[in-house]
C-alpha cells in the first residue's frame, strides 16, 4: 500500500513580495486521507491551486501517478483523474441538481470534447441512474429537479462533492468541505467521506474544523507561512508543541 499517488516536490510560489509557498514537499499515498492544516494565509489553498493547474508554481513540480501536472490545463488534470471541491462551491446554479451531476459524468465518459448534438439527454438512462444514486448518497435526491442555485450553502457543498464523486476520481482534493455546514450536516459529510475512503479513494483535505480532521485523516501536514513545519500521524501532530504554538493555540483538540 505504499504507492505514491501525488508527489509534490520543492514547490515554491510568490505573489509580489509575499512568499506563499516555499520548498513544499508532499507525498500522498494511495487510499489514504491526507489532511493539510494550518492558520489562515498559510498557503493551503494556493497549494491545491497548484495541484489542479489554477496557479503555476515558480519552482518545483507536481507528479500524479507518473504524469507531470505542472503547466497543464485544469481540464487535462481532471481528465487524468483529479477532482476538486472548492472553498466556495463551484456548481452550475442555473441547472437542476440532476444535470449538475450528469455533466461531470459525461466528461468522464466522453473526454474533454465530444460533439453529441443529436443524442437526447433524456435517453441517457445509465448516466441518469448513476447521478440519482450519487445524489441519494449525499442526501439531495428529493431536490434533484430543483435548481442548484436555490440550495443552501451547505447543500451546495454536498452537491459539489457529488459532482466530483460521480467521476470516480483517483484523487479527490477537498478545500474545507464542511465550512458553513451545521453540526448535523458536518457529521453526515464525515460519514460520507468515510464511506468513500472504504472504497479506496485517495483524498487530500484542507480543513479548519479539527473534529473533521481527526475523524478522517490518516496523515497530517501542518503548513505555516508557506512551509510544512510538521508532518505525521494525527496522534503525533496533536501532541506536537510547534503545532500547538503555530496553529492550534487555544483550540480544544
Amino acid at each position: 500500500m505504499n504507492d505514491i499517488v501525488l508527489n509534490v516536490s520543492n514547490i515554491g510560489k510568490h505573489f509580489g513580495g509575499l512568499q506563499a509557498l516555499e520548498n513544499v514537499n508532499l507525498q500522498i499515498e494511495a487510499g489514504k486521507t491526507h489532511a493539510i492544516i494550518g492558520p489562515n494565509g498559510a498557503g493551503k489553498s494556493t497549494l491545491l491551486n497548484v495541484c489542479v493547474g489554477r496557479i503555476k508554481p515558480d519552482t518545483g513540480s507536481v507528479k500524479f501517478l507518473g504524469d507531470n501536472l505542472t503547466g497543464r490545463k485544469p481540464h487535462e488534470i481532471n481528465q487524468l483523474g483529479v477532482a476538486r471541491v472548492f472553498q466556495t462551491p463551484e456548481i452550475f446554479p442555473e441547472l437542476t441538481l440532476l444535470r449538475n451531476v450528469m455533466v461531470p459524468a459525461f466528461a468522464k465518459r466522453e473526454g474533454a470534447f465530444k460533439l453529441n448534438a443529436f443524442r437526447k439527454v433524456d435517453n441517457e438512462a445509465e448516466v441518469r441512474d448513476e447521478a440519482e444514486h450519487i445524489l441519494e448518497d449525499v442526501g439531495l435526491k428529493e431536490q434533484m429537479n430543483g435548481l442548484a442555485g436555490s440550495l443552501s450553502r451547505g447543500d451546495k457543498r454536498r452537491l459539489e462533492l457529488a459532482m466530483c464523486l460521480i467521476q470516480h476520481p483517483k484523487l479527490l482534493l477537498l478545500d474545507e468541505p464542511t465550512a458553513g455546514m451545521s453540526r448535523h450536516d458536518t457529521n453526515r459529510t464525515i460519514d460520507l467521506l468515510r464511506l468513500i475512503k472504504e472504497r479506496g479513494m485517495t483524498k487530500v483535505i484542507i480543513e479548519h474544523d479539527m473534529h473533521v480532521v481527526f475523524s478522517l485523516a490518516d496523515h497530517i501536514s501542518v503548513l505555516a507561512q508557506g512551509q510544512i513545519i510538521v508532518e505525521g500521524s494525527p496522534d503525533m501532530v496533536r501532541g506536537n508543541a510547534r503545532v500547538q504554538e503555530a496553529y492550534l493555540g487555544g483550540a480544544h483538540v
Binding site: 489542479v52 490545463k73 485544469p74 481540464h75 481532471n78 477532482a83 476538486r84 472548492f86 463551484e90 456548481i91 452550475f92 446554479p93 442555473e94 441547472l95 444535470r99 450528469m102 455533466v103 461531470p104 459525461f106 466528461a107 466522453e110 465530444k114 460533439l115 453529441n116 448534438a117 443529436f118 443524442r119 437526447k120 439527454v121 441517457e124 459532482m163 467521476q167
Partner: peptide, 20 residues
C-alpha cells in the same frame, strides 16, 4: 442533447467546466 446541456453549463459556470 448532452451537447446543449454542456453549453448551458458553460454559461452557468465556465470555471467549473474546466475543473470538470
Amino acid at each position: 442533447s448532452p451537447f446543449g446541456v454542456k453549453l448551458l453549463a458553460i454559461k452557468s459556470n465556465q470555471t467549473r467546466m474546466g475543473y470538470t
